[in-house]
Design a binder for these strands. Structure first.
Length: 369
RNA sequence: GGGUAGAUACCCAAGUGGCCAAAGGGGGCUGACUGUAAAUCAGCUGUCGUACGACUUCGGAGGUUCGAAUCCUUCUCUACCCA
């Protein structure tokens, strides 16, 4: 492990943590939300707009970039940071999630996964070794172990996928060659506390600069999510960042930070933005296509400091979304991403000031009180 | 003035005796979306009703028929052609 991937804990408040994770492309202040840029772009958002929102870490995807434009091409073009003009930290997912989300087109065996391209149907194969190699070609600061994300309720399947994920983790560690990338292991185990604990014990026994919790927010209830975090978080090392993959909403962020999560990513702010919904910071959403906003001169959120809320009315945004204008998707995505980034910043401040318990009250679920 | 074609729901448009409250689009309304095969997907869209259903519709009026958006007569309007 290189020096650059040290995690410094600045403050804790209950289980909530404020920290800093050093990467070759800058320091990530946690808690942090990472907008998702699957195909080397946060959909509808420019890097300049991300900078204005104060984004730091963003996520991109091995599966998609391997298929198009190809990881070798990205390497030839100087790596992902240069290619997409994002000078700050980048994390690449391993392609493991696609094993789950496109399971009908995949054949999984112990060695790896054979899958069909969603673009042209051609056949391809990922193994832990090839996933690491692709991620090394892409050149993100944080790379993810190749894992298998199972149906969270099917215990037999969850167990076998978890065991395989552990074996694959060992192979990822051996395959990794670049010193300027941090490999994160992924804890699996579905909704089963015993499997989660077993997975956490195994994964955190490896000397890795950070750890992720995968396989959540795939249909389980909030109760189940909290139960899993209760089972897992006490087993996670204090001096390493904890990344909860694929989460979430403003409520998710606060509740999970209260359990000790440091890093989040989620497609929701950009997908909702394209599909006409916006987060309300305090929880819930507005469907900006609704007729009731047609003559509403208010911003989405009076308190919000994002570019969209500072400059545009609900009536105008509704007009853009009804007309399916591209700018509408951009403006709603800006609001949604900003909401999560600002919430993460505010949580960090509250933790540093020892005020997180009071700060978090409005968001906490019944099962988390 | 004569001829031909046409008039279907918010719009376009199928339907030419019963299976038609009426296909399909569009538009409109509503909902869903959590490590992105998603600027996607789903539902509703004559009126009333949760629903079974009831009622009113296919340019107007009248007729034929057990039964008409569909056949006949006539009127109105539209498009094109000939004077």
């Amino acid at each position: 492990m290189t020096k650059s991937f040290q995690y410094h804990l600045d403050a804790t408040d209950g289980a909530a943590r404020a920290g800093r994770f050093e990467t070759p492309h800058g320091v990530i202040e946690t808690p942090i939300f990472a907008p998702v840029g699957t195909a080397a772009t946060v959909k509808s958002i420019t890097p300049a707009q991300l900078h204005e929102m104060g984004a730091s870490l963003i996520l991109s995807n091995t599966y998609h970039l391997y298929l198009r434009p190809g990881d070798k091409l990205v390497a030839e073009m100087g790596g992902l940071h240069k290619f997409m003009n994002w000078p700050n930290p980048i994390l690449t997912d391993s392609g493991g999630f696609q094993v789950f989300s496109q399971s009908e087109n995949n054949k999984i065996d112990d060695d790896g996964v054979t899958f069909k391209s969603h673009i042209d149907g051609s056949s391809h194969r990922f193994t832990p070794e090839s996933s690491i190699k692709i991620q090394e070609n892409l050149g993100a600061d944080i790379i993810m172990a190749f894992d298998e994300c199972a149906d969270p309720y099917d215990k037999k399947y969850v167990k076998s996928a978890m065991d395989r994920t552990h074996r694959w983790l060992d192979r990822c560690i051996i395959a990794k060659t670049r010193e300027d990338q941090a490999l994160f292991g992924i804890v699996q185990g579905g909704i089963f506390d015993d499997l989660r604990a077993e997975s956490a014990a195994y994964v955190t026994s490896k000397d890795l600069p950070g750890f992720a919790i995968g396989g959540l927010s795939v249909g389980e209830t909030k109760e189940e999510m909290m139960s899993v975090l209760n089972a897992v978080m006490p087993l996670m090392p204090e001096n390493k960042p904890r990344y909860l993959m694929g989460v979430g909403t403003p409520e998710d962020l606060v509740n999970c930070v209260s359990k000790g999560i440091d890093i989040f990513d989620c497609v929701l702010p950009t997908r909702l933005g394209r599909n006409r919904s916006v987060f309300l910071r305090q929880g819930g959403r507005l469907n900006m296509r609704n007729l009731k906003f047609a003559k509403d001169s208010n911003p989405i959120d009076q308190e919000c400091t994002c570019y969209t809320c500072q400059n545009f009315s609900r009536a105008y945004l509704r007009h853009l979304m009804v007309c399916k204008e591209m700018t509408g998707a951009t403006l709603l995505s800006i609001h949604n991403i900003h909401t999560l980034l600002q919430l993460a910043r505010d949580m960090r401040k509250a933790i540093v000031n020892g005020e997180f318990e009071e700060f978090s009250q409005p968001w906490l679920w019944e099962v988390n009180k």
